[in-house]
Design a protein around this nucleic acid. Structure first.
Lengths: 192, 192
DNA sequence: TGCATGTATATCGGTTCGATATATTTTAAC
DNA sequence: GTTAAAATATATCGAACCGATATACATGCA
């Protein structure tokens, strides 16, 4: 999925500005499985407007910089539909500096490894808390219930995966720390 | 982690050519949490050699193109160690076209959603089988036991996460399919 | 024989990221 | 009450990165 398609997807949830789209990928509903930076979003929106897939109305607000609100056109909906159904999706791409570091645990100090693992556990915990909070709020206030069935299912997927990751790290925290410091990075021990 | 650091990490497991490094990120030990393309690897290795972090010996083979085998220098080991311990690692980045598609399940056909979900279940199953096969082989033949303790822990992490992902999709397959086709992409239903 | 797959290096265009610039308002702290 | 920080908002630029492709020979297998 390129940035243009990703922007169409964001706009399928309702009209939005470039800034608001960015937030959807930072904090919002797409945060855990898609990303887009300003440097990609703004040119993408310009291109989409040129191609007639979105319209742009400029809201000249007092007390704020101008806000350009984008909205899907019928042609934009078609385009999104095509993109979603075009082919069996490619494999997920995961980049985890944490796992890269932990892969080399033996070459590193136990206290450093402890910090990395603990930071990651905290991170997962805060994500899980955030998701749970979201679920609870929707249960309490049906008015706030904006997520569709499939959006809840996707969120449930994320929850299940983060839960597994969290639990595994908690269970194996001490094993990681025990593995640390068993080798030095002077290369003399490298297997060849 | 930039491509240079990633290449240093790959070479920490032993000397290798650019092609072999690529394979480590496609199939091998790093496959599930790091990526690097040829277009990044070859320039990175050239740069690393210029900076004295790796050495390169050209193996002129008969019956094969020349093979450039790279190996870490002591300075390269230092550099890798610095990179691993420099700061608390940034957040994981996940891009999943599958989840992006499933997020919009309501707008799509049930049979298409079934194909996407089933393909993903198969995919997870084959990954899990591969990991299990790897674990079994190491248990049977201690000679093949090349993974260190932390490398096994990282693999265990992957296994736990993929298992959770697989199980969730199996459990919720029918719910996804039931959610499909509830809306059309003509935009008239979009909440604004 | 022919064709796909595997081994191996390399490059090029296009996409994307990350940081930064600019400017104003709201919130928080002291 | 003032000042600092964070949020709102658009935009750009260089560096990094990906994906596809070119080249070339070997191997396997139908």
């Amino acid at each position: 999925m390129d940035t243009k398609t990703i922007c169409l997807g964001a706009l399928a949830l309702g009209e939005a500005s470039g800034y608001e789209i960015r937030k959807m990928f930072e904090d919002g509903p797409f945060a855990h499985f898609a990303q887009a930076a300003y440097g990609s979003i703004y040119p993408a929106l310009t291109k989409l407007a040129e191609d007639g897939l979105v319209t742009c109305k400029s809201e000249t607000q007092e007390k704020r910089p101008d806000k350009k609100v984008y909205r899907l056109t019928p042609s934009g909906w078609d385009h999104l539909e095509q993109a979603l159904q075009s082919k069996i999706p490619s494999e997920d791409k995961v980049r985890s500096d944490t796992l890269f570091i932990l892969f080399f645990t033996e070459w590193q100090r136990p206290d450093w490894i402890a910090r990395v693992v603990d930071a990651r556990i905290d991170h997962y915990r805060s994500i899980l808390d955030g998701m749970q909070h979201c679920i609870d709020r929707e249960a309490a206030e049906p008015a706030h219930n904006c997520a569709s069935a499939s959006q809840k299912l996707v969120r449930g997927f994320g929850h299940a995966v983060y839960r597994a990751a969290h639990d595994y790290l908690v269970e194996n925290r001490d094993a990681f720390i025990a593995a640390a410091g068993q080798r030095r990075t002077d290369g003399r021990e490298a297997a060849e």
